[in-house]
Simulated scan of single mutants.
Amino acid sequence: MSEGPERRLLDREAHVLVVEDDGEMRNLVTRLLREAGFRASAARDGREMWEVLESPAGEPDLVLLDVMLPGTSGLDLLRRLRERSRTPVMMLTARGEEMDRVLGLELGADDYVAKPFAPRELVARVRALLRRTTPVEAPAVQRSRRITFAGWALDTARRELTAPDGASVDLSGAEYDLLLAFLEHPGRVLSREQLLEVGKRRVSADPFDRTIDVQVSRLRRKIEPDEASPALIKTVRGAGYVLVAEVSRG
C-alpha cells in the first residue's frame, strides 16, 4: 500500500528547534528527535534561539520551547515569535502547571507537552503537530475547495481564512482545526472532548482543563473581532460549543 502525502512530507527530515536550558533534557530531546528521523537543532536560551531562527538556513519547521528559561522566559519568547512568524510552537511545561498551558495557548502556542513525558509520546505529538500545520500539496480537484460562512471564507487547500472585507486572517494550527470542525458540523453542539480529539490532543483527565475554552476564545476574537460582530460560536452551558452561522461550500 502506498504512503500518503503526510507520511512523505514527514519523511523529508523536518527541522525541529529545541529551546531548553537544562543540558540533560536538551540532549535527551534532540537525541530522541534525531533517532525518529528529524533534523534537530538546540538552543539554551532566547539569544541562541534567535540566532538559529535568523540563520541563513531559515526558520525551522517547528519550535519546541521550554516555558522556564533563564533571562527571557519561554512565554515572552513565544509572544515575540508570534509577532513575526507562524512557525508551529510546542511548549514544554511542568506537569500540573495549568496556568503555563493556558498562557501559552493564549499567546499562540499550537500544543504543549508536560514534563516528565514519555519519549514515544513526545515524538508522536511532534509528528501530529507537523501534520496539522504543514500544508500538503492537494490534488487539483481539491484546490478550489472553499467554505463560506457569515461573509468569511476558508480555503482548505491553502489553509487560509479571509475576512468579509477581504483581509487575510492568520490562524494557528489548533485554531484552524477548531474552525474546520465547526464548519464541518454547523448547528451541531460539539463537546469539549470532541474538540480535544479534533485537535489531536490527549483528552485531559481533569474535567476543569481549560485548553479548549482558551482555543475557542482565541478563535472567537478573530472571527468576532468586536461587539458589533455577530456571534458565530455560541456556548451551550454544560454541553460544549456550536457554530450558528449558515455554511456553504463551493
Rank of each mutant, 00 (worst) to 15 (best):
L53Q: 10
A94C: 08
V214G: 11
W152L: 01
R143L: 04
A138W: 02
K222S: 01
S172D: 12
G166R: 01
R143G: 00
D177P: 00
V244Y: 02
G151V: 09
R95E: 10
A36L: 08
V18D: 09
V102R: 03
R8Q: 05
E97M: 04
D165L: 00
F149V: 00
P164A: 00
L219Q: 12
G187S: 05
D111E: 09
P186G: 07
Q215R: 15
L17V: 05
A36D: 15
I223D: 13
A205S: 10
T211I: 07
L92D: 13
R80H: 14
A36K: 08
L33P: 08
F208N: 13
V123A: 05
L178S: 04
P70M: 00
R7D: 10
S172W: 05
L103F: 15
L179D: 12
G74D: 14
R80N: 15
S204T: 12
G187D: 09
V141R: 13
T211R: 11
D11T: 09
E227W: 05
V67A: 13
D213E: 07
E83C: 06
L129M: 11
A174V: 14
G46F: 01
P186R: 08
T156F: 07
A150L: 01
T162P: 12
D170H: 11
L154V: 02
A153M: 12
G71S: 07
A205C: 02
M91F: 06
K115V: 04
H185I: 02
V236P: 12
P207S: 07
G187E: 08
E3G: 02
P225S: 12
R145M: 06
V63Y: 14
E51Q: 14
V242D: 06
L129R: 10
G96N: 07
A114Y: 09
G199Y: 09
V203R: 15
Y176C: 00
R158P: 05
R7N: 03
A124N: 01
D206F: 11
V216R: 01
R188Y: 03
A157C: 04
G240D: 12
V242N: 06
L65P: 09
H15G: 09
A231F: 09
V247M: 00
V29K: 05
W152I: 05
A114L: 09
M1S: 13
D155Y: 08
G23I: 05
A153D: 14
V126G: 05
E121L: 13
E197D: 15
D111A: 01
R26D: 14
A14G: 03
I147E: 11
G173N: 08
P119I: 04
P230V: 02
Y176H: 06
A205P: 08
E121A: 04
L195D: 02
L129S: 10
L196G: 14
A231G: 07
R7H: 04
P56F: 02
L196I: 07
P135M: 01
D61I: 01
D45R: 02
T162Q: 14
D111M: 01
R127L: 06
E54V: 06
L179E: 10
A42W: 12
A181I: 00
T134C: 03
G23K: 11
M49V: 01
M90Y: 14
L130W: 00
H15S: 14
L180T: 04
F208R: 13
P164M: 03
R79S: 12
I147W: 11
P225V: 11
P139A: 05
V126F: 06
S144N: 15
V236M: 07
G104L: 08
E97Q: 13
